[in-house]
Design a protein around this nucleic acid. Sequence first.
DNA 1: CGTTGTCTGTGCGTTGTCGCACACTGCAAC
DNA 2: GTTGCAGTGTGCGACAACGCACAGACAACG
Lengths: 279, 279
Amino acid sequence: MQFSESPTQIRQDAVFVRSSVEQRDAFWRGKDLPSVEKADLALNQILADLPSEETRRVLANLELIHVQTNDILAEGGVPISHCYFPLDAVVALVANLEEGATVEVGLIGNEGMVGIRVILGRSTGAYLAVVQIPGKCLRIKPDLLKAEFKRGGVLQDRLLQYVRYMLAQVSQTAACNRMHLLEQRLCRWLLSIQDRVKTAELLITHEAIAHMLGATRSDVSRVVGALGKLGILHSSRGKTTILDRKALESTSCECYWIVRNDYIYPLRARKASSGKGNL
Amino acid sequence: MQFSESPTQIRQDAVFVRSSVEQRDAFWRGKDLPSVEKADLALNQILADLPSEETRRVLANLELIHVQTNDILAEGGVPISHCYFPLDAVVALVANLEEGATVEVGLIGNEGMVGIRVILGRSTGAYLAVVQIPGKCLRIKPDLLKAEFKRGGVLQDRLLQYVRYMLAQVSQTAACNRMHLLEQRLCRWLLSIQDRVKTAELLITHEAIAHMLGATRSDVSRVVGALGKLGILHSSRGKTTILDRKALESTSCECYWIVRNDYIYPLRARKASSGKGNL
DNA sequence: CGTTGTCTGTGCGTTGTCGCACACTGCAAC
DNA sequence: GTTGCAGTGTGCGACAACGCACAGACAACG
């Protein structure tokens, strides 16, 4: 999907350039929206395989949209307009600190949902939700999601499980940010992204990575360079390729596996020490 | 409450000395348990002022217990035996990293509950829940809490609100741990504790603080010393007294107010810059 | 009153990261 | 091609925090 009229980029702050999702809403308005199929639901792990009744109700209220890198899906203090279920996109929750510094506090892929706070009793976002990897999302109006949540069916269960996973992820990040070296955190981050995009090539610059990790661009370049010399990565001009995932895992900190092992649906759980893991 | 037979201390790891709550269970067994009054419920903000029917049901299942410093109420990977609602105690959630390092990821006082994961679909704890400030707690068996949660009444709402608050707290800690200086984080921590104990005197050693902040004891001593010279604190031998709360607030990072302003029940919200805030 | 052990103050070399600067490189627009 | 520029490699001084060490200070207890 391409937009001939490229959306004007609004400068949001020194760091993120907002490419407005709302403008693309306007683009679609009045045209035929792509219809949402059951097959789409299957791509998000919260929505997949719901009981047929829940599927029917939810399906009627979902929209399929494409999101692009740097799209902002929610913002701190701002009412959440939609809840987004990524299908193949990846979204980062980013804290925007006083001095203009940024750090990622959480990562959301097809295992989760953007805007979880609406089911936790707040209609506003807490942090900036920025698209890191473009792709498709299903979205729904907060009220409708909340109503379905209140019914107490399987979706409620899934969402609560996801909240727990998110909490685990964020908690571990809190510990990790305090204790672990940039190199370890970088490896963990790359692994987390790769789990969600399933490809070895990541289209992202060192500077963007630095903003996620709350580090300087130059240090990210240094670490990436070092990992490159070890044959673990190849990185050049906005494209980083993971060459040796196992090595990445053993250079990463334990946090990667701790979070992963707390995942909602039991995956093939692995210890950091065993060092074997590929999706 | 005193225990003549002082509970044998089991060495759990290099850092925390477990004083077993279970042993005190044994102490009480067969004796008259202190009965739980409605007045006790009022001291915890999740349990306070529930509809009378919910109050009645919950009351029947709660136990009142005293917890002491370093009691461990839950542990990572271990089934949660009880959910604890602090009345005047304060509990820290602590991540135990590989190398024996420790960092606090969350703090729980009478605004919350220890063991929130049981309503999020996991019966095991994620981190060590260590009592920092001794006092009273109400506790309940996970199954009973979960059943009441499932009924979808006011308690469900309160617990979900609390989950959101916890998520906000932990997320901000993730950002804070990455970006802010020890001095700022220490001030934030002291403020958070004081909000929960409501007294100016904190009985805690520099070393314990260091474990919470994931810093070295010597650096904590240095920072505390500096704050002491400014007349903000007085600290000596396991006792730290907050002398100038406003100064503490302005030396702390923004994170303190960000979390506080996201609190469940609208408090007197304040900006960090306005610098006026006392409980 | 002295002993013991906990808690705290402080010194010092090391390390990870910052903050800034500047040069190089490959891609894209002209 | 040439130019422009985003993206990257690298250097260097500054600084926060680590890691370790040791001495002083105070409380509890005999």
